[in-house]
Design a binder for these strands. Structure first.
Length: 356
DNA sequence: AAGCCGGGGAA
DNA sequence: TTCCCAGGCTT
C-alpha cells in the first residue's frame, strides 16, 4: 500500500518537483572540477574517458596535466604511443588511452577534427560506450539523452526500490529506460551530472548513505523503508588467481634495464623491469645471469612485494643486481632516470622496486 | 552473459 | 580482506 507512494509512480506523478529538487541541489552542491570550468567537447570527452572506473579525485591531476600537454584533438591524434601512455601512467586500464588516440584519428579523418555531437555517432567511436556517449552528448552538446553510470544505477535502484541484480544487463536497461523518461527539457547535462553527483556525495554505497541530506528523500523507496544497505542488489565477484614472479632490478652505471610488454593483454605496451615466472632463489638468479653473459658485482634480494589487480595478484621476489660487465647485446633498453621520467610508462606494480 | 582490463581509497 | 569507482570491449 505505502509502496505506491514511493518509487517510480511517486516520481512520475511529481516529475517536475523531482527535476527541480535535483537541479537546485546540484546548483548549490556541484564540485568545482577542472573539466567543468571550460566544458568543451574535447575536455568533456577526455574527462569522461579518464573517469571510467576511476574516482574523480584520482582523475583531476591526470586531466590537468593531459590537457596542458595535449590541448586538442589534432595534437592527440599525432601523439606517440609512449608519450600517451606516459601521461596515463598509474591511471590503469591503459587501453583507454589507446582508444582515445584511435578515436582522435577517426575524428581528424572523418569529422574535420571535430567531436561528433550525437549519441549514436559517439557510441560508434572506440572507447565510448553507452555511458560515455550519453555523458558527452548531454554535457557537451545539451542533447536529451541519459548517462547512466554506477552512481546512477545505485541511486535509481534505491529511489525506485528496484531489487533486481544491477550487474545484469536487463536491470541496467530497465533503469536506463526509466532515467530517459525523467530527463527535463533543458539542463540535461546538469540533470545527468546531478544524479551522478548525488551518488558520489550523498547516496553512498553500502550502509553509508546520508539520507538526511538527500534532495530526493521524499521520493525514495529505500530511504522510506530504511533499507539503503539492501539496495542495490549485486551479484558477488569472482576470485583472484595468484602468480609468482621474480623481478630483476639490473643497474649499470646510471642506467636500469627495462623491457616493453606485449601489445595485447594485461598492461599492454607498457615498460617493465625484466622478470620471470616463479620465485627464483639467489643461486638460480646468478645462474640465469651467467647464461645471459652478465657479470654481477653485487646481488641482493628485495621484497617480496605484492601487487593486487582486479582478478590477478602478483607475488614478486626482487633481486637488485649491480652489473659490472655485459658480454653481448642485451634484449633490454638501459634507461636513465630522466628517460624513465619522460618516456617510459611503468605500471604501479613495479613502483616498490623502482625507488633508489 | 561472462571474462578481461588497473589502481587506489575506504570500510 | 572486500567493495567500488562518472565502463568498454571481446568472446
Amino acid at each position: 500500500m505505502m509502496e505506491l507512494f514511493f518509487g517510480m509512480e511517486r516520481i512520475t506523478d511529481h516529475l517536475k518537483t523531482f527535476q527541480d529538487k535535483l537541479l537546485a541541489w546540484y546548483q548549490a552542491q556541484a564540485r568545482d572540477l577542472p573539466w567543468r570550468r571550460n566544458p568543451t567537447p574535447y575536455h568533456v570527452w577526455v574527462s569522461e574517458v579518464m573517469l571510467q572506473q576511476t574516482r574523480v579525485e584520482t582523475a583531476i591531476v591526470y586531466f590537468q596535466r593531459f590537457i596542458a600537454s595535449v590541448p586538442n584533438i589534432r595534437a592527440l591524434s599525432e601523439l606517440s604511443d609512449d608519450h600517451l601512455l606516459k601521461l596515463w601512467q598509474g591511471l590503469g586500464y591503459y587501453r583507454r588511452a589507446m582508444y582515445l588516440k584511435k578515436a582522435a584519428r577517426i575524428m581528424v579523418q572523418k569529422y574535420h577534427g571535430q567531436m561528433p555531437a550525437d549519441y549514436k555517432t559517439l557510441l560508434a567511436l572506440p572507447g565510448i560506450g553507452t555511458y560515455s556517449a550519453g555523458a558527452i552528448a548531454s554535457i557537451a552538446f545539451g542533447h536529451r539523452v541519459a548517462a547512466v553510470d554506477g552512481n546512477v544505477l545505485r541511486v535509481m535502484a534505491r529511489v525506485t526500490g528496484n531489487k533486481n541484480d544491477i550487474s545484469q544487463l536487463a536491470t541496467r536497461k530497465q533503469i536506463h529506460g526509466f532515467v530517459e523518461k525523467l530527463l527535463p527539457l533543458e539542463s540535461i547535462g546538469d540533470f545527468n551530472q546531478a544524479l551522478m553527483e548525488l551518488g558520489a556525495k550523498v547516496c553512498l554505497p553500502g550502509r553509508a548513505p546520508k539520507c538526511g541530506k538527500c534532495p530526493a528523500s521524499q521520493f525514495c523507496y529505500a530511504g522510506y523503508h530504511k533499507m539503503p544497505a539492501e539496495i542495490p542488489v549485486k551479484s558477488p565477484k569472482r576470485k583472484r588467481t595468484i602468480a609468482k614472479k621474480t623481478v630483476l632490478i639490473m643497474v649499470r652505471g646510471q642506467r636500469i634495464a627495462l623491457q616493453k610488454r606485449k601489445k595485447t593483454g594485461l598492461l599492454a605496451n607498457l615498460w617493465e623491469l625484466p622478470n620471470q615466472a616463479g620465485h627464483l632463489t639467489e643461486q638460480q638468479c646468478k645462474r640465469k645471469l651467467k647464461q645471459w653473459g652478465i657479470t654481477a658485482q653485487t646481488i641482493s634480494a628485495k621484497g617480496p612485494l605484492r601487487h593486487v589487480f582486479t582478478h590477478l595478484e602478483w607475488r614478486m621476489q626482487g633481486y637488485h643486481i649491480l652489473v659490472s660487465e655485459v658480454e653481448n647485446a642485451t634484449p633490454w633498453v638501459w634507461a636513465t632516470k630522466r628517460e624513465i621520467d619522460e618516456l617510459y610508462s611503468i605500471p604501479s606494480a613495479f613502483k616498490g622496486f623502482m625507488q633508489g
